[in-house]
Computed example of a mutant assay.
Amino acid sequence: MTRPAIYLDHNAASPLLPEARSALLAALDLVGNPSSVHGHGRALRNLIDTARGQVAALAGAERKQVVFTGSATEAITQAIVGGARSFAASAIVISAGEHAAVGKAAEATGLPVITISLLPDGCIDLDQLADVLADAEGNLLVALHWVNNETGVVQPMARINALVGPTRHTLFIDAVQALGKLPLDFAASAPDMMAISGHKIGAPAGIGALLVKAHADLVRLIPGGGQEQGRRGGTEAAALIAGFGAAAAAFAGHYESADVAALTARLEAALPGEAVIFGGARLGNVINFAVPGVKSATAMMALDLMGLSVSSGSACSSGKVGPSHVLAAMGVAPELAECALRVSLGWTSTAADVDAFVAGYQSILERQRARQGQAA
């Protein structure tokens, strides 16, 4: 089987950066355990400490605030399940547009889950959030996303911070899609915890991090031998961590947001007039759209045969193509939502890639119109 020629699914995973590949391979040649006190162990420990600084720099965090995890899902679960226990939360607050990892972690706490609606533009209903915060009894753990993985909608983080920050409530932010694309400045911002992921910025899969403020330092999920300053047990995956660090240090040099946004604008301008684009204020690398009557499952299979890789939304559903809970929460009609495609660009994307997608999708439209004409 040949690899797809054109990859336009960076929100699912961004291709491995050459710097991350080099760091990963070099680290694989090292032997030992980072917790060992001999020279081999110290070499791995130094490698992890370097990567911690690189990730902290990209996230606007202090080095000591970075807790490496096996994935963003683990970081999210640690923040929500561990945070609910550590802060004695009375309930979990999420939005209707959260990634499944957030929703499942909220359910796993066994606490009441309060769901904040999405507005038609994809933004969280901040008036409803303000009411929930004001009426709450006890401490709430508020778990919200910064950038929606399906639509690219950027939540008004300054307003969320202003609402939750001055209260007694705990704020966790899923910043997986924001890392490297927006200034996080974790150390100086209101969130108590924040989750990030390696493979969204060209690091290998299987490595993420939870950023924690000092007062959240006791948030735990996996007990063990005291690794990560006692905040996450288990021998660190030094090679993956090295790849994450190298990607964090190199990502800005490969990913120029203005260039990627220009490619997205090129794609948007070439869409047919009947196309509906979902979401208001979006990150510049993603466009989620639908042409009525062109079902996403059919379009994705046809595009895949052309060597074009796109998606219909989240990549965390075991390869299933189903209705989007995000679009449903935005009030999109089911028959239109089932036609939605997500095209997400990144550091490997070119104008030729965009033009190939446009040509491929146009051929799908033409074949469908021809069939409809024959049926008439």
Rank of each mutant, 00 (worst) to 15 (best):
C123G: 10
L218I: 14
A239H: 03
M306R: 14
S363D: 12
M330F: 04
P183V: 06
H254C: 07
A352D: 12
A356I: 11
A59T: 07
A57T: 11
V354Q: 00
Y7V: 13
A329I: 03
P18A: 11
G373T: 14
R266G: 09
A290R: 04
S36K: 11
A51H: 11
P120S: 15
L133Q: 07
G224L: 10
I173Y: 00
A239G: 08
G273C: 15
L303M: 14
I277F: 05
D135N: 10
V321F: 08
L171M: 13
N149W: 00
V132P: 03
N161K: 10
A248V: 09
I116P: 00
A249E: 07
K295E: 11
A238I: 06
V358R: 08
L163W: 01
S189L: 06
F68G: 04
E107S: 06
P156E: 10
V153E: 02
G331V: 08
A340L: 07
G245P: 01
V142M: 03
A333H: 07
N46R: 15
L263F: 02
E268S: 13
P204R: 05
G279V: 05
K104Y: 02
R3W: 13
L44I: 15
V113C: 06
I92T: 09
A108W: 06
L171H: 04
G243V: 03
S309G: 14
G284C: 01
S14N: 06
S95D: 13
G110C: 11
G322N: 12
A333C: 08
L24H: 05
G234D: 04
A91W: 00
E98N: 10
A337C: 09
M300Y: 02
E19M: 12
G208I: 04
E107I: 04
A290P: 07
S349D: 03
G234K: 03
A190E: 07
A72K: 04
Y7M: 14
S318Y: 13
L144D: 01
A246N: 09
G360L: 13
R45Q: 11
G202R: 02
R159I: 10
E338F: 03
I222A: 07
V219Y: 01
G233V: 07
Q368D: 14
S349K: 02
D29V: 12
A248Y: 00
G230C: 05
V142N: 00
G313F: 01
A61V: 06
L119I: 12
L141T: 10
A26G: 14
E107A: 05
C123A: 14
I92C: 09
V358K: 09
F172M: 07
A262Q: 08
M301N: 11
A302F: 03
E107R: 03
E107P: 00
Q368Y: 13
V354W: 00
A84L: 05
E256I: 10
L44W: 01
A175Q: 02
A359S: 15
A51S: 15
T50N: 14
V102M: 04
I222Y: 04
G208S: 04
G360D: 12
E256K: 12
D121C: 15
S36T: 13
L283T: 07
S312F: 08
P4C: 14
A299W: 00
T73G: 10
D185K: 14
